[in-house]
């Protein structure tokens, strides 16, 4: 393998990392506020199909992203109402959201299977500057990307800043750690949880848009292929920290891309397809020892409905 192969693995890897990063950033906020949303896959696929149809009919990829973000947000509110106001089981509700999204997207996208987006309706990788792209190894990976790639990094940094350096961040974290105490301090627990769940849905929708208007600009049923679940694993791996999520997403992306490259060297494409999922389990296991050593865990009230005055 020469350097250009490695360069290409990094480039493809960073591309495939973008949807993972966006979706796990959203889930980090939802979980920080105490809401476990296992419906990422469903929101992502709905984002993908709505972005694709919008971009195809209007020819505008940004409009596709906007619609996908809105659709993801609306989907997440179903989970929000069930988890927050109706105090339902968040695991079951999230699974339901995933099933519902996968099913509904296949119904909506039925007429569009096999269509490709025309070039003008896609996001295409474009060098930021000719000089930077020539940097060895990482030049292409960092500076020859589509807009959503850069946007996802900006979002990650902003979300990190808000979570750790602002009062809003303290409000969110305390809602996820101890909602009763937050409530006593006058924080509107329900409002915070709805807002964070909605942000999670919006970013999952945007992640889906990336898949269908940039990464592989076509509509394919189940095209998320478990990425929503990998994003959920990333959330844990990142210890609910947006900056660590960047690192984790690129790690996953590069391993996935490395797999595709190895196909060319005669390794079984089927087995390589399974590698990211196995890696998820291994990474979570390896991460778990660190989590335990540093006594860092999930937000204490994650998945627990909050009812004022009820233990």
């Amino acid at each position: 393998m020469d350097l250009s192969v490695v360069e290409n693995i990094l480039w493809v890897g960073f591309r495939s990392a973008t949807p993972l990063l966006l979706a796990s950033l959203g889930e980090i906020y939802a979980e920080r506020s105490g809401i476990l949303n296992l419906g990422v896959e469903g929101m992502m696929i709905m984002g993908a199909v709505s972005a694709f149809i919008t971009a195809l009919t209007t020819g505008n990829p940004w409009l596709g992203v906007a619609v996908a973000t809105a659709v993801g947000l609306l989907m997440s509110l179903i989970h929000g109402v069930i988890s927050i106001h109706l105090r339902g089981n968040q695991v079951v509700s999230g699974l339901a959201l995933t099933m519902f999204g996968l099913g509904l997207s296949s119904v909506i996208g039925r007429k569009y299977v096999g269509y490709q987006l025309p070039v003008k309706a896609r996001f295409l990788p474009k060098p930021l500057s000719e000089g930077l792209v020539k940097l060895p190894l990482v030049g292409k990976a960092l500076f020859d990307q589509e807009p959503l790639f850069y946007l996802s990094i900006v979002i990650a940094v902003v979300l990190w800043f808000v979570l750790y350096r602002t009062k809003v961040g303290i409000v969110i974290r305390s809602t996820g750690e101890n909602p009763a105490a937050a409530d006593a301090l006058g924080i509107n627990v329900y409002l915070v949880r709805y807002a964070c769940t909605a942000l999670g849905g919006a970013l999952a929708g945007m992640a889906g848009a990336y898949l269908s208007v940039a990464y592989s600009p076509a509509w394919i049923e189940n095209m998320t292929a478990g990425r929503g679940w990998i994003a959920l694993a990333l959330t844990i791996f990142a210890l609910w920290n947006p900056l660590r999520a960047i690192f984790g997403a690129y790690l996953f992306g590069v391993v996935e891309a490395g797999g595709y490259t190895l196909q060319a060297y005669g390794y079984s494409q089927w087995l390589l397809n399974g590698v990211p999922y196995l890696l998820t389990v291994i990474v979570l296991t390896a991460g778990a020892t660190e989590t335990m050593r540093r006594r860092m865990g999930a937000p204490a009230a994650l998945g627990v409905p909050y009812v004022r005055g009820e233990k």
């Binding site: 105090r87 079951v92 339901a96 099933m99 099913g103 997207s105 296949s106």
Partner: peptide, 28 residues
């Protein structure tokens, strides 16, 4: 009706949503 196989998933998801919502009435 030329509906995709996902119809069943969609139905499953919807049933779960409403059963979860209905459970609220059973608990409260």
């Amino acid at each position: 009706y030329k509906l995709p196989i996902g119809v069943v998933d969609m139905f499953n998801g919807a049933v779960l949503f409403f059963v979860l919502a209905g459970d609220f009435l059973l608990r409260y």
